Amino acid sequence: MVHFVGAGPGAPDLITLRGAELLKQADVIIYAGSLVNPALLELARGDCEIHNSAKMTLEQVIAVMEQAEAVGRTTVRLHTGDPCVYGAIREQMDALDELGIPYDDVPGVSSFCGAAAALRAEYTLPGVSQSVIITRLAGRTPVPEAESLMSMASHGASMAVFLSSGMLDRVQEELLKGGAYTEDTPAALVYKATWPEEKTVRCTVGTLAQAGEEHGISKTALVLVGNFLDSPYEKSKLYDPSFTTEFREASR
Rank of each mutant, 00 (worst) to 15 (best):
F4R: 00
A7M: 03
A7G: 01
G8W: 06
P9Y: 03
A11K: 00
D13L: 01
D13T: 04
T16D: 07
R18F: 00
E21R: 15
L23V: 10
L23Q: 08
D27I: 00
V28P: 12
Y31W: 14
L35N: 11
N37S: 14
L40T: 10
E42M: 15
L43T: 04
L43M: 05
I50S: 07
H51L: 09
S53I: 09
L58R: 12
L58V: 10
V61T: 12
I62G: 13
V64Y: 01
M65E: 14
A68I: 04
A70K: 14
V71R: 15
T75V: 15
R77V: 08
H79R: 13
C84Y: 07
Y86P: 06
G87W: 02
Q92G: 02
A95Y: 04
G100W: 06
I101W: 10
P102M: 03
P102H: 05
V106W: 12
P107C: 09
S110E: 03
F112G: 13
F112T: 06
F112N: 10
A115L: 12
A117C: 10
A118M: 11
A118H: 00
L119P: 04
P126S: 09
G127T: 11
V128A: 02
S129A: 13
S131C: 14
V132L: 15
I133N: 13
R136K: 15
R136A: 06
R136E: 02
L137P: 14
A138W: 04
G139Q: 07
R140F: 01
T141R: 14
V143T: 10
P144H: 00
M152V: 03
S154N: 06
H155A: 12
A157Y: 11
V161D: 09
F162T: 04
L163Q: 03
S164R: 05
S164E: 01
G166Y: 08
D169F: 04
D169N: 13
Q172W: 02
E174N: 13
Y181A: 07
T182F: 00
E183A: 06
D184S: 10
A193H: 06
A193Q: 04
T194R: 01
W195R: 00
P196K: 09
E198P: 03
T200A: 02
V201N: 05
R202L: 15
R202K: 14
R202H: 15
C203N: 11
T204C: 09
G206F: 09
G206L: 02
G206A: 05
G206M: 10
L208S: 02
G216Q: 05
A221N: 08
V223M: 01
N227S: 08
P232S: 04
P232R: 00
K237T: 08
L238S: 15
Y239L: 13
P241V: 01
F243E: 08
T244Q: 13
F247S: 14
R248G: 10
